[in-house]
């Protein structure tokens, strides 16, 4: 009887919606201001002020992969980096809290929810946060003349979700096995910050030496930046776009699997 009545996975995920709404209602004020202010600061400092030097140096469209201005070149990079940052953050302290400080994961899996259900709901919530924040960022960028086409501006939003996914799940898997939050510094120092600086957000990676170029191409952020830039600059290369999408989806899926595995090891002993 029990097995025939067993609710599906989607039902189990939906049962957690009220929890995540409650969490969001508690935290949105703090994040709303930042998701508006941070992009403005980046656009001001890097895009406009630093960009003025770059544009005056006569770098030109040829050296900026066809972008009309430095701001137009880095805008898609900034959005992708924002997706990375928020995606990674959602999978660090909040995960440690549920594992170690409040231990709410333990109470969740004492209910009919499985670890897969818990991970899926948390990933979807993180993507909601990424989507909201990147959506605001993309709107803030509108008056700065960074979109070469309307469809590109629209499509870059779902790409930010893909970038978010490629960080939410692997970082969640990493956090699931950590005994203390000190490991988060590692994620920043060898993951988030180097990717932010060297994955093509601020300069074409052709400026890097050959081995470093390949290293940059291996990072999920590079795929996200390239794909986003194709769209905002309206220079779509379908085959390359497919590669980028597949890469990001694959990292996201592997990360999901790894998260479930590591959380199971941690919680089900």
């Amino acid at each position: 009887m029990a097995t025939t009545l067993a609710p599906g996975r989607a039902t189990m995920v939906l049962r957690q919606v009220d929890y995540w709404i409650t969490v969001y209602r508690r935290t949105w004020k703090g994040t709303a201001v930042f998701s508006f202010l941070m992009p403005l600061m980046y656009v001001g400092a890097m895009g406009l002020l630093l960009g003025e030097y770059v544009d005056r140096s006569g770098a030109g469209a040829a050296r900026l992969e066809g972008a009309a201005s430095y701001l137009a070149f880095i805008a898609p990079g900034l959005v992708a980096a924002q997706a990375m940052q928020i995606g990674a953050d959602e999978s660090m302290w909040p995960v440690m809290g549920r594992l170690k400080w409040h231990k709410t994961y333990y109470s969740m899996i004492a209910s009919p929810l499985s670890i897969g259900d818990v991970v899926t709901a948390q990933v979807l919530y993180s993507l909601f946060r990424v989507g909201l924040s990147c959506g605001v960022f993309l709107l803030v960028l509108t008056p700065f003349d960074v979109y070469e086409s309307g469809w590109g501006a629209v499509l870059v939003w779902p790409v930010s979700l893909l970038v978010g996914l490629a960080f939410v799940t692997p970082v969640l898997g990493f956090s699931a096995g950590l005994s203390s939050e000190q490991g988060f510094a590692l994620i920043y120092r060898i993951g988030v910050v180097p990717m932010f600086l060297f994955s093509g957000a601020f300069f074409p990676i052709s400026n890097l030496s050959e081995p470093l170029q390949w290293l940059a191409r291996a990072t999920p952020l590079w795929h996200g930046v390239e794909l986003s830039r194709m769209l905002t600059l309206a220079q779509l290369d379908l085959s390359m776009a497919a590669v980028h999408v597949c890469y990001l989806v694959a990292v996201g899926a592997l990360g999901w699997w790894w998260s479930v595995r590591r959380l199971t090891r941690r919680l089900v002993i």
Binding site: R15, T22, T104, S107, P112
Partner: peptide, 21 residues
């Protein structure tokens, strides 16, 4: 206790009840 310390007393109950459908 494994309660969610950031949530209200009542929300802890409501949210948990929802896990049971």
């Amino acid at each position: 206790d494994t309660l969610d310390n950031d949530l209200t007393v009542r929300d802890n109950l409501v949210v948990y009840g929802r896990y049971f459908g």
